[in-house]
Nucleic acid binder design. Structure first.
Length: 825
DNA sequence: GACCTGCTGCGGCCTG
């Protein structure tokens, strides 16, 4: 290695002065960056990644200073983080070593929270390094003087790259990096990642066509993670279905009692609200040291909770994914996960919130909410031990993001078409962008496409006489900057006390059902609804014990393939009479009952159960492919059977399987029992056509289009503080959808909406794999008189959607009585 | 009385 390529000795000296020894992986990063290499650094949280890349940046600056090539006083290093809460902490961490190593360097902070005075200061005298977000970087790219301010950036660090690479924020990041590389061809880029399965791919997505020079550095030994399960005290009385898990209240209280600080993760916001209330009802002495945290609570409230966690003042916090990332909460000793962990990466991420420092052990305890979650727990423990971490897929040339970027660059000094095309194609996301697609995007920002030519507000970007594309109108520029970003939130109503204090936000549909004086639970408080006015619901504190809990329409994350496979392996073991570990031992009676009445699903067995009831003819199948695939699969079967004989079906799904119920008899044994017949029903031929026909695909695309229309800048969200209602936004994006369908069928955004539905909402690739795998499994076919332990939760699921709560309780109680009689020896 | 599955993340205008 030549001498110029080694990092300066000053870095070692800084460590030595503290009695520290740099880790080998930190040295590797320093050396690679000193040679001008980009790369990806992968290590678990709390392992020293920050210093690895930050000292690499300082090392390069020291090198340049020593070589006399350091002639710039502008912005040199950009540090991107996906979260504002992380940005301020990062700034502090980066500033710490500066006074000794880099006197004169300043680390700035630029997010949406940054006051305009600070922004102005940064414009006048730029800090050497800036901590910011992908969105704020895009905003900087949209400033007319972007080139002057950003052309000296020679190193970019992208923190938590695993959080960005799989979504459109990651694509926006790729485009921004390409822009910076246009000004600084030798730009050095380093990504940091933690829980991720496909590392080489992650590096490739980050670096684009510069990846050939890329380095992959893996951190020290994998962190020790201990995962165990709170096994219900009486497993045979544990519910077969349901997701709340309140039966486990007392064991959870005992766990919290035994540890200093505990994070209690739930899967949904309403579940977090309910658990918080139940814990407080059971332990009133925890008032003040028990807190609640989720994405619909006001930022001020959340900040207070985060501070309490950092200082160790809080005993426990009930939260959703809102605490997955971000700030390091050193005092957290224990993490509980109520309900399905869904994936290995997600579980490791949550486990990592405890023992957050080098050398400490992360501990997570799974709390099942129904019997089969004991199986998931057993599967998760094995998958974690084997570190079978899910891969993340990066979006493939989303044109809405490209359209937004074109306007951004046109504002930020303008572009020449052929230059920008070449630049965009250097990103991984757009490496296969065709000339036709490019021309379409360019035409779309220039004229609004075919159908919008008459509307001047959609002539956003025009070439001048020299062929430079620019934004001709200041108002269009202003509107564009207000819409930069790819996150489209569901419009919600603000909730405030009548004195003005903000509490958070709730979906319109829930508030609409409330009448003056009604009580509800939100933010861990009992509230009385007073009135609503302009997208704000005013409330006052209420007394009394009862109250509805709001529900939010959130995402529906399926069980990951990794976890599903691990579950099938566990079942296979059980079929050979092996029940290792407390989870499988507790589950044994239930699995034996399943085996007695029907059979255990396994990786090489497809269990099909039919049953006749007063409701009609039931079919239960258990492919273990996650709920999204089961939706597609159920719709596919219903469509294919319905094409041969008159029958209509109602469908229920969960992560393990699905149920098809028809009022009229269907001879499932004839349709499935021979391999030839099953092959006909489960063929992947005409899969796309049949799935689209079986589901209301147009309606799904229309909903998806709301997001695309927003990102592409078709729909204006309104000025801050005067949000438009969800209905208005849906209506206007829906209008565009209709107009394009009717008058502009070649609009590529329509095709994108359909592609996103198929890939993200139906997991078409996984569906195809599942179908192929199913036809290779041996079919175990049973005609039953009653639902099995695997079938029962599906019946409850279907009833839940069809019936009111009270009627559901009655029905479930009746089903349970029947089952208990049947299960009695 | 309702709830008892359905997450997370960012950003911005005008007030001279």
């Amino acid at each position: 290695m030549n001498r110029r390529a080694s990092p300066p000795a000053a870095l070692d000296g800084w460590f030595a002065a503290r009695g520290w020894q740099p880790f080998a992986f930190q040295r590797r990063v320093w050396a690679a960056a000193a040679r001008g290499h980009s790369g990806l650094l992968h290590a678990t949280t709390g392992a020293g990644k920050t210093y690895a890349v930050w000292f690499a940046a300082l090392g390069r600056a020291l090198q340049q200073r020593a070589a006399g090539t350091d002639d710039s006083r502008g912005l040199r290093v950009l540090w991107l983080t996906p979260m504002r809460a992380l940005a301020a902490d990062t700034q502090r961490a980066l500033e710490a070593p500066l006074s000794e190593l880099m006197p004169g360097w300043r680390v700035g902070l630029r997010t949406g929270d940054t006051p305009s005075s600070e922004r102005a200061r940064q414009a006048k005298s730029p800090p050497a390094a800036l901590v910011t977000t992908p969105e704020s970087l895009s905003l900087m790219l949209s400033q007319a003087d972007a080139a002057r301010r950003l052309q000296h950036v020679d190193m970019v660090i992208v923190d938590e790259w695993h959080e960005l690479m799989g979504n459109k924020r990651g694509v926006q990041t790729q485009l921004a990096l390409a822009r910076l590389r246009h000004w600084q061809p030798r730009l050095v880029v380093w990504g940091l990642s933690a829980t991720l399965g496909n590392l080489p791919r992650a590096r490739q997505v980050l670096l684009g066509d510069a990846d050939a020079q890329g380095v992959l550095v893996q951190g020290r030994l994998p962190k020790r993670v201990v995962v165990d399960t709170l096994v219900p005290p009486n497993p045979s009385r544990f519910p077969w279905g349901g997701h709340l898990g309140i039966e486990m209240l007392q064991p959870v209280i005992d766990e919290i009692d035994r540890h200093s600080t505990t994070l209690v993760f739930t899967n949904t916001r309403s579940q977090a609200e309910i658990w918080y209330q139940k814990l407080l009802d059971a332990r009133p002495d925890w008032a003040g040291v028990l807190a609640l945290h989720h994405g619909s609570l006001d930022p001020a409230l959340r900040g207070w909770v985060e501070e309490g966690l950092k200082s160790g003042r809080l005993k426990a916090v009930v939260s959703t994914s809102s605490l997955d990332l971000g700030v390091d909460f050193l005092p957290v000793e224990r993490v509980l996960q109520i309900g399905s962990p869904k994936g290995v990466a997600r579980l490791l991420q949550r486990a990592g919130r405890s023992g957050h420092a080098p050398g400490r052990v992360s501990r997570l305890t799974l709390v099942p909410t129904h019997s089969l979650e004991l199986l998931e727990a057993a599967a998760a423990i094995r998958a974690v031990a084997a570190r079978r971490i899910e891969s993340r897929r990066a979006p493939d040339k989303p044109l809405d993001v490209l359209v937004q970027h074109l306007v951004t660059v046109a504002l930020g000094g303008g572009f020449r078409a052929s230059d920008l095309l070449a630049e965009v194609r250097r990103t991984d996301a757009y490496r296969t962008l065709t000339d036709v697609e490019w021309q379409w995007a360019l035409d779309f920002v220039a004229r609004g496409g075919q159908s919008l030519v008459v509307y001047p507000e959609y002539r956003r970007v025009l070439p001048d006489d020299d062929g430079m594309y620019r934004v001709p109108d200041a108002a269009i520029g202003r509107r564009h900057r207000m819409g930069i970003g790819t996150i489209v939130s569901d419009a919600a109503m603000q909730v405030r006390f009548v004195n003005g204090t903000r509490l958070g936000s709730i979906e319109e549909s829930f508030i609409a059902r409330l009448r003056r004086g009604d009580h509800f639970l939100f933010g861990g408080r009992r509230l009385e609804f007073v009135r609503s006015h302009e997208m704000t619901a005013f409330v006052r504190p209420a007394t009394g014990r009862r109250g509805a809990v709001p529900r939010w329409q959130g995402g529906q994350m399926p069980l990951s393939s990794e976890l599903a496979h691990a579950a099938l392996e566990r079942l296979q073991q059980a079929a050979r009479d092996r029940f290792p570990g407390p989870e499988m031992r507790a589950l044994r009676p239930l699995l034996e009952l399943q085996a007695r009445w029907s059979a255990l699903p396994a990786a090489d067995v497809l269990v099909a159960e039919t049953m006749r009831s007063r409701e009609g003819q039931h079919l239960f199948l258990y492919p273990f492919a996650g709920r999204l695939v089961h939706v597609g699969l159920a719709a596919l079967l219903a469509y294919r059977v319905g094409a041969r004989q008159p029958a209509s079906f109602s469908i229920a799904v969960n992560d393990y399987g699905f149920e098809l119920l028809s009022a009229t008899p269907v001879d499932w044994s004839a349709l499935l029992a021979t391999p030839e017949a099953a092959q006909r029903l489960l063929t992947t031929d005409a899969l796309l056509e049949d799935v689209l026909a079986g589901l209301n695909a147009t309606e799904l695309s229309r909903r998806r289009f709301r997001e695309i229309a927003r990102v592409a800048g078709l729909v204006f969200q309104g000025y801050p503080g005067q949000a438009r209602s969800a209905r208005q936004l849906q209506a206007s994006s829906s209008l565009f959808f209709d107009v394009f369908q009717r008058h502009d069928a070649g609009n590529l955004l329509l095709g994108q909406a359909e592609r996103e539905v198929l890939e993200q909402e139906l997991e078409l690739g996984r569906l195809r794999e599942t179908l192929t795998a199913l036809t290779q499994r041996r079919l175990a076919f049973f005609e039953l008189r009653r639902a099995t332990p695997f079938g029962f939760p599906l019946m409850v699921e279907r009833l839940r959607e069809a019936l009111s709560t009270e009627a559901l309780t009655d029905r479930v109680a009746r089903l349970l009585r029947e089952l208990e009689r049947a299960a009695a020896p």
